[in-house]
Design a protein around this nucleic acid. Sequence first.
DNA 1: GTCTATAAGACGATAGAC
DNA 2: GTCTATCGTCTTATAGAC
Lengths: 209, 209
Amino acid sequence: MSSVTTTATPKARLSSEERRAQIVLAALSVFGAKGYVGTTTDDVARAAEVSQPYVVRLFGSKENLFLAAIEEALARMLAAFDTALEAPLDAGEDERLEHRIGRSYIDLLQVRGLHQTLSHAFLLGAHPVIGPRARDGYARVWQYLREHGFTPERAHAFLAEGMMLNTVIGLRLADDNDTDPRIAELFTACFPTEKAAVLRLAPRVDEPW
Amino acid sequence: MSSVTTTATPKARLSSEERRAQIVLAALSVFGAKGYVGTTTDDVARAAEVSQPYVVRLFGSKENLFLAAIEEALARMLAAFDTALEAPLDAGEDERLEHRIGRSYIDLLQVRGLHQTLSHAFLLGAHPVIGPRARDGYARVWQYLREHGFTPERAHAFLAEGMMLNTVIGLRLADDNDTDPRIAELFTACFPTEKAAVLRLAPRVDEPW
DNA sequence: GTCTATAAGACGATAGAC
DNA sequence: GTCTATCGTCTTATAGAC
């Protein structure tokens, strides 16, 4: 890990709100790649191009920053689901709930680290502060699905597919896609349609380790 | 995090192999709860009741220890699958591949942290050393399924179910099971059968944070 | 085979200037 | 609103004794 403390060149003053939003976005990207403990506040500061103490100042602590990142991820996700359900159907498009919401879930790859940050949070159930928030977040997704036409069985299957997608993203399977035949087959089985193209286009983090 | 460095009382001498095995087991349990970066070599040392420098001495580095833990988890998992496929069917038991192997997957909860350690590894795809190993590990599971009667579609569905199970375990959903009605419903949907009892019996880590 | 002691570095957070 | 400087702590790894 780099030991270079951020000493960013003075930036244009932004409103506190704008900075917070910018830093949370940067945090999603770094937390997604390196996890909660593996991410330093300086990593986030560099990604957001502000100084490390300022990140801590704005959020109070790294823990709070992570909680804010989770919240941002969930809010964006549920908002994307809303939009997907409201939008009129394209001609010939599969109208199943799973397809519409699933598509929007994959489109969220445009927000760097969103899926992986959530997955990291979901693995921290034993953490006294993060654990309860992560459980609540997962429950909110479940509730959303149940209130929007999913039976428990369909919600269950949808979430399973989503967790698998998160794994494929976290593994960066697309990177080895071409060399390992097992991975090529697995990748195809997971993305039978044009979704693979979307995944390949997903923004990459400039090597964070 | 505790700052107490382990200074264990002198232990009975074991063979290097025995100690390694013991430490890897302890490592699975701690890595599973706190992740790769979040786990200190001292955490593992305390869990294994040896000194911190000795853990490093035996494995060379924390990174190597994590790789050993992943390897142990995969080996145990595939061995459990083998056993599940070889065993004669109980009377009236569902003979589907998914059921037999899935059951053995849940039984692996007896090995503390096994599922979560793998999930953590699967989220570290961007790591230069761990990433390639994690991808290879996932590919080995895929290959195993494909060579034991699973079509790509069935393998895909099985893995999705497994990743969801890992999430539920990592979240420690069972802990809130009784208070949050959303979680109770979700929990039931994920474990329609007696599996829930198994999950509840799953060994807990004595609060690691 | 296993420990104690400790060096060297990295990290989160605070103080305080501008 | 944002930075520089810095403290104290935690952490990995090494040295070396038993």
